[in-house]
Amino acid sequence: MATLSPYIYSANAREQADFYVGVFGGEITNVQSYGDLPGMEDSKKHLIMHLEIQALGLRFFMADAGAEANDRGTGMDLALTFRHEEEAASIYSGLAKDGEVIMPFERMFWGTMLGRVRDRYGVLWQVATEA
């Protein structure tokens, strides 16, 4: 058995992690900076080497990546599926705040709710309800 955890590279991992905790609930459970490494130059000590968020029963990882964080491509979305429509709608709205709605959160012809959004940090999300 395995678990799959998204690892999101960011231009400002701490700020982005605080945004996700605000949207998802949960908490930041681990933060390691490059300052924890012996011999790291002072100009990089404040950068996040590894951060963990526990939220929605999931674990998300993050790290600062500078300019490379903005080159996400379009080949992958992070998909969240919820049992209850109200929770899904709340998460979708939170992710969409100051982001870009790609597909409104609406009932699909197969019966579930689904929406797609690019959050303010450029991460693509699909938020859905269970069948």
Results as ranks from 00 to 15, higher is better:
42 D>M: 00
51 L>Y: 08
69 A>C: 10
102 I>G: 04
102 I>M: 14
3 T>R: 15
56 L>P: 02
115 G>T: 10
120 R>A: 11
10 S>H: 00
115 G>V: 07
89 A>M: 07
128 A>L: 12
71 D>E: 15
85 E>F: 08
90 S>R: 14
70 N>K: 13
116 R>G: 03
33 S>P: 00
18 D>V: 09
3 T>H: 13
43 S>W: 00
78 L>I: 15
62 M>Q: 05
76 M>W: 02
24 F>V: 05
32 Q>M: 13
2 A>Y: 08
102 I>R: 12
13 A>T: 01
93 S>N: 10
60 F>E: 09
130 E>F: 04
33 S>Q: 01
103 M>G: 01
16 Q>N: 06
44 K>M: 14
40 M>W: 00
105 F>H: 04
106 E>S: 07
76 M>P: 01
81 T>S: 14
63 A>I: 00
129 T>Y: 08
39 G>I: 02
114 L>G: 06
49 M>Q: 11
87 E>H: 05
63 A>M: 08
111 G>K: 09
67 A>K: 08
13 A>Y: 01
101 V>S: 04
43 S>A: 10
123 V>L: 14
51 L>D: 03
20 Y>H: 07
30 N>V: 07
22 G>P: 09
107 R>F: 06
63 A>R: 00
93 S>W: 03
11 A>I: 02
84 H>D: 13
50 H>S: 09
70 N>A: 15
3 T>S: 15
19 F>C: 04
72 R>T: 09
124 L>M: 15
30 N>T: 10
47 L>T: 04
24 F>E: 10
108 M>N: 03
2 A>V: 10
57 G>I: 06
41 E>A: 06
106 E>Q: 12
91 I>T: 11
120 R>G: 03
128 A>Y: 05
2 A>C: 08
5 S>R: 12
30 N>R: 11
129 T>C: 05
71 D>A: 14
66 G>C: 02
24 F>W: 11
79 A>N: 13
125 W>L: 11
131 A>R: 13
127 V>I: 15
57 G>Y: 15
18 D>I: 06
7 Y>G: 05
19 F>H: 09
71 D>I: 07
123 V>N: 13
103 M>Q: 11
8 I>N: 08
83 R>W: 01
8 I>D: 06
14 R>C: 00
67 A>N: 03
51 L>G: 07
119 D>Q: 10
31 V>C: 01
99 G>V: 01
30 N>A: 14
61 F>C: 10
50 H>N: 14
9 Y>I: 11
91 I>C: 12
51 L>M: 10
71 D>G: 05
124 L>H: 12
79 A>L: 12
90 S>V: 06
88 A>Q: 06
96 A>M: 08
39 G>P: 00
